[in-house]
């Protein structure tokens, strides 16, 4: 694990989590693995960043949580995206596209 992989761009973590959770229910490790998967291994989210972000987003009303059984029959805390969370995906996607487009044209120039 190199430094660059862990240094998530400021503000992208929330979007990644919301995207990773999608319309299913996931626990912390599942979300972490899913992010790793959908970013093709570029981002590995450490628990020290993941859990604070999950709790913050839950308090913001983008995620809800409940306790459930995990694959190996253990209690685990699951997260699910809320309606507000879906709206937030749109907002942040738009923002990200603007930034990415702007950066791309800036680098081309």
């Amino acid at each position: 694990m190199t430094q660059s992989q862990t240094n998530l761009l400021q503000g992208t973590l929330d979007l990644l989590i919301l995207k990773a959770v999608g319309d299913v229910e996931m626990h912390g490790l599942g979300i972490s693995r899913r992010i790793e998967h959908i970013t093709e291994g570029t981002f590995q989210v450490k628990p020290g960043s993941l859990f604070p972000a999950l709790h913050r987003m839950e308090e913001a009303g983008w995620l809800t949580s409940f306790w459930g059984e995990s694959e190996n029959n253990r209690r685990a805390k699951y997260y699910r995206r809320t309606k507000a969370g879906e709206r937030q995906v749109h907002v942040e996607t738009k923002q990200w596209n603007t930034i990415a487009g702007a950066m791309a044209s800036a680098l081309k120039a």
Partner: peptide, 14 residues
């Protein structure tokens, strides 16, 4: 206690 359980569950899962 919820927080503690959640993180321990994470460690167990890993």
């Amino acid at each position: 206690t919820d927080l503690d359980a959640e993180i321990r569950a994470y460690v167990d899962a890993v």
